[in-house]
Design a protein around this nucleic acid. Structure first.
Lengths: 118, 118
DNA sequence: TTAACATATGAGCCATTGTTCATATGTATT
DNA sequence: AATACATATGAACAATGGCTCATATGTTAA
């Protein structure tokens, strides 16, 4: 038989906790946005781009050279970072320089580094 | 013609920056692990599970009830969180209680919330 | 040991996504 | 205007990933 947990013993017992947690959980929409933000961070190419930009603003082909990837691949990923408002850019002649747009990024990444190095 | 950026004007001009950034970029392996960590955070179901566990330890079917999802779906995601060493669990009879295993998670999530709410 | 409950897991399906390739857009120089 | 360089973008393909369904494992009580 397929499980139906609406009225099983375990959840009956813990109804108080379930209701409390359900009440205090942040809005669906915010949780979705947080997941979307982490999704952007959840790719090693984008992580490497962000870490490169921690050091200095860079042009697209500069980033491509540092990471050993094609200009097209980098440009596509910069688009993702741009849409998430994580990078900003300025044009200088033919060249476009990208840099980080948000101060929270550094804090988030520092904590992440601490976690993976423990 | 296919672009070849090994010796173009832009990267010639910015060689200094490229070399500096390439030198200071963290190890490949660490950057990969950081991306893997964010990948785990980059799903709204897992974000909701983590936020639920911020409030209280919970059993699997309790989490399933709070999120309105099947026990199987939650169990699969808890496995991912377990493998990333983000949650721990204790058994009490038939029930398994999950809770958060790492203090960095709270800090990372607080910063993420601040970013999406600005 | 049999039945019932709580959780875990493997296979399969559908959707998402990162890269490549080709090409378009934008800018400066001649 | 024509060429060259820097960047952006669309289509297509392969790979990844989350959920469902069925079933297995683990635990307790009768």
């Amino acid at each position: 038989m397929v499980h139906n947990h609406e009225h099983d013993a375990c959840c009956e017992t813990h109804t108080k906790v379930v209701e409390k947690v359900a009440r205090e959980l942040p809005d669906e929409e915010i949780l979705y946005d947080v997941a979307e933000l982490f999704k952007v961070f959840g790719d090693s190419t984008r992580v490497r781009i962000i870490c490169a930009l921690f050091e200095s603003e860079m042009c697209v082909c500069g980033i491509a050279e540092v990471l050993g990837m094609t200009q097209s691949a980098i440009s596509h990923q910069l688009r993702v970072l741009k849409q998430a408002r994580l990078v900003k850019y300025r044009r200088e002649g033919k060249t476009v320089f990208y840099s980080l747009a948000d101060a929270h990024i550094k804090t988030i990444f520092n904590q992440a580094f601490e976690h993976v190095m423990e």
